[in-house]
Amino acid sequence: MAWVYLIFGGIMEVGWALGLKYSNGFTNIKVVIPTVILIILSFYAFSKSLKLLPVSTAYAVFTGLGSFGTALVGMIFLGDTVTFIKIGLVMMLISCIIGLKLVSREPNREDAV
């Protein structure tokens, strides 16, 4: 269950990163409110995952998912430049995130979450 919280938090990170872009320095209240809600949800889910996962692994995955998702959204929907090098680096990033999941051992304390 900790990994579900962690992935959810990483996905919410993509949302609030984009919200920060469009909040115009926190002056556009229509964007600020959902952005703050996404920040709270993101960090809540991240903190729940820390009950079972080591902080080093959880933080790397949390920020990596946010970076991966934000880069992907930027390239697909926001007109960010797309190059083979950028795609390769983003793929390497997601490979490292998957690798961290594969080598991490989650204790059998599901009641902690």
Score class of each variant (00 low, 15 high):
Met1Asp: 08
Met1Leu: 10
Ala2His: 13
Trp3Cys: 01
Val4Glu: 02
Val4Asp: 02
Tyr5Glu: 00
Phe8Glu: 00
Gly9Asn: 08
Gly10Trp: 00
Gly10Leu: 02
Ile11Asp: 04
Ile11Gln: 01
Met12Glu: 04
Met12Ser: 08
Val14His: 03
Gly15Ser: 14
Gly15Glu: 00
Trp16Val: 01
Ala17Asn: 13
Ala17Tyr: 04
Ala17Gly: 11
Leu20Thr: 14
Leu20Val: 15
Tyr22Met: 04
Ser23Thr: 15
Ser23Gly: 09
Ser23Phe: 07
Asn24Cys: 01
Gly25Asn: 03
Phe26Pro: 05
Thr27Cys: 01
Thr27Trp: 01
Ile29Trp: 12
Lys30Arg: 08
Thr35Asn: 04
Leu41Val: 11
Leu41Cys: 14
Leu41Lys: 01
Tyr44Thr: 11
Ala45Asp: 02
Ala45Thr: 11
Phe46Trp: 07
Ser47Asp: 09
Lys48Asn: 12
Lys48His: 10
Ser49Asn: 09
Leu50Ala: 04
Leu50Lys: 06
Lys51Ser: 14
Leu53Arg: 09
Pro54His: 10
Thr57Ser: 13
Ala58His: 07
Ala58Asp: 08
Tyr59Gln: 10
Ala60His: 04
Val61Tyr: 02
Val61Glu: 03
Phe62Ser: 10
Thr63Gln: 07
Thr63Ser: 15
Thr63Pro: 00
Leu65Gln: 05
Phe68Arg: 01
Phe68Gln: 04
Phe68Asn: 06
Gly69Tyr: 06
Thr70Asn: 04
Leu72Glu: 11
Gly74His: 05
Gly74Arg: 00
Gly79Phe: 03
Thr83His: 03
Phe84Gly: 15
Ile85Gly: 04
Ile85Met: 11
Ile85Ala: 13
Lys86Glu: 14
Lys86Met: 11
Ile87Glu: 12
Gly88Phe: 05
Gly88His: 07
Gly88Tyr: 03
Gly88Glu: 07
Gly88Val: 02
Leu89Phe: 15
Val90Trp: 05
Met91Pro: 04
Met91Asp: 08
Met92Tyr: 10
Leu93Ala: 10
Cys96Lys: 00
Ile98Trp: 05
Leu100His: 09
Leu102Pro: 06
Val103Pro: 04
Arg105Lys: 15
Glu106Met: 12
Pro107Ile: 07
Asn108His: 11
Ala112Thr: 01
Val113Met: 02
Val113Lys: 08
